[in-house]
């Protein structure tokens, strides 16, 4: 049985430092197992948020060797043997203790998104092709890794202006729903701040559910905003059609 060295951030909003632990590595072990070992054997007060250990609850988002990822989905055997593994909290949100951050800003943003608004007086037969595009977005487990890696939130701190990738796909889910009746393009442009995104695709790279956040979510939203605000030909066609 080999041994891994973990350097885990210990501290809170007032500061902290890396603390080194030696953890025996077993076959199939993930970083979250190593953190549990540290809790059990060394420091019982190590704070780490987790729940399912199956990459479905989105709780154990951390930065391992500087890369935002789920601790429960990061196998220990993928790291070079003998080299220390650093484990930090996600950077974009205020730290509470050790590896736990306060992600409540996301829930406040969620409240700002207008509810799904279907027509109530029309019958609608739903076909598979009408819903399969938005089913991809419903795979989101709200781990907020995309929010964390987005440089607009992480480095520029524009939480006042941009909702972030997670909520872009939430809006996309509603915009592309065949029964949705409200036009969200003004909201997207002015309140959600879709124009702030510069398509560097880090959100897609870190998504543990492999949702194509930019290609299938944000870019189609940008194109819909372009239809309304940046495309005079589209405007003329809409006028001719009386829409």
């Amino acid at each position: 049985m080999s041994e891994a060295i973990l350097r885990v951030f210990r501290g809170d909003a007032n500061g902290g430092e890396e603390k080194e632990y030696k953890v025996p590595v077993e076959e199939g072990m993930v970083v979250l197992d190593a953190l549990h070992y540290i809790q059990a054997e060394y420091d019982h007060d190590l704070a780490v948020r987790w729940n399912c250990k199956a990459a479905k609850c989105g709780s154990c988002s951390t930065e391992i060797n500087g890369k935002p990822q789920l601790a429960c989905k990061s196998r220990m055997d993928k790291f070079p043997e003998g080299q220390p593994i650093t484990v930090y909290p996600i950077k974009a949100f205020p730290i509470m203790k050790d590896l736990v951050t306060d992600v409540s800003w996301n829930y406040e943003v969620n409240k700002k998104i207008p509810e799904f608004t279907p027509a109530t007086d029309e019958e609608f037969t739903m076909y598979q092709e009408d819903v399969e595009r938005i089913q991809e977005f419903r795979k989101c487990i709200e781990c907020f890794l995309c929010q964390n890696v987005c440089h607009i939130l992480r480095n520029h701190e524009r939480k006042d202006a941009f909702f972030g990738p997670r909520f872009m796909i939430k809006i996309a889910e509603r915009v592309m729903h065949p029964m949705e009746k409200i036009d969200r393009r003004e909201f997207l442009k002015d309140e959600a701040g879709v124009g702030y995104c510069n398509i560097t695709k880090c959100c897609t790279e870190v998504c543990p559910e492999d949702i194509h956040i930019t290609d299938n979510g944000i870019i189609p939203l940008k194109e819909r905003v372009a239809d309304k605000y940046f495309d005079p030909l589209s405007w003329v066609l809409r006028k001719i059609k009386g829409k």
Binding site: G11, N14, G15, Y88, A92, P94, N155
Partner: peptide, 8 residues
């Protein structure tokens, strides 16, 4: 952003 972790 300084969150006290040294991730700056």
């Amino acid at each position: 952003m300084s969150n006290g972790t040294g991730q700056n």
